[in-house]
Amino acid sequence: MSAESLQFVAGGLTTGAIYALVALGFSIIFNASGVINFAQGEFVMIGGMSAATLFASGMALPVAIACAVGAAGIVGLMLAKFAVGRARRADVVTLIIITIGASMLLRGLAQIVWDKRIHALPSLSGHRPVELFGATILPQSLWVLAVTIAVVAMLSWFFGQTRLGKAMLATSYNRLAAELVGIDVRIVLLASFGLAAVLGAIAGVLIAPITFVSYDSGVMLGLKGFAAAILGGLGSFPGAVVGGLTLGLLESLAAGYLSSAYKDVIAFVVMLAVLLVMPGGILGARTSARV
């Protein structure tokens, strides 16, 4: 592989990992409730903006990041409790519209709480690029990949081993049966929004040092994450990771070898192609196989 293509691949994997984290949030909420949460991108923005402003106000970087992720988690819980939870008996379309409204509200609030300017967050370990087989890689890219791997490992432990995780999975497979064994599906809904918000915020604080952050930077990341989730198969966790990395790579290669003008178009082409050709996504056979 040439140094140039290695460079594109490294860049693609970095943004792909971010998309994967956002896509995981979409799938977790979709599994728990059947809802597509269009406020997922705002969790990313809240994470990045909170971390940037807390750091700018003098907080140590790791503390600012932890507080930002926690704050986004609380916003996620509040969204589940006051908006989605209230309308529990409403149909899924209504709930989806509620999340669209919530995303607009959160962007509006962000302009009031913060401003319309672009904010920066320093990298976790400096900006001096590392040389790797001829490609120059930002240390933050390595952080993005390492943290994403750690998050995926923790999620598979959570869903595979813990009581709450298994309850969430069971609810996604069969809501009625989950209620009949005593699982509180309202707690599952809350937990799914909290978890998705935390994942989004982690994506936000990881990407902010690379791309900056502003009140509306969640819009594009939310859509890209959604495209990644569709590509991998909405509701599938391995699918979210595969979809995210694939989309990141496709974008990076298209921008590198064709024209950077194509970068943002890729996600939408991919999304349309998947919906037309294989609606289940790469790893999403589960929902369609279920009878």
């Binding site: 298994k166 497979y173 699982i183 279920r290």
Partner: peptide, 25 residues
């Protein structure tokens, strides 16, 4: 405790996990 119409097992989960979930409470 109810055994619902149409069985309603947790399809992708193992038999063991299904049974363990039965003991959730």
């Amino acid at each position: 405790v109810q055994v619902p119409e149409g069985r309603q097992v947790f399809g992708p989960m193992t038999v063991d996990d299904n049974l363990r979930l039965g003991a959730f409470m």
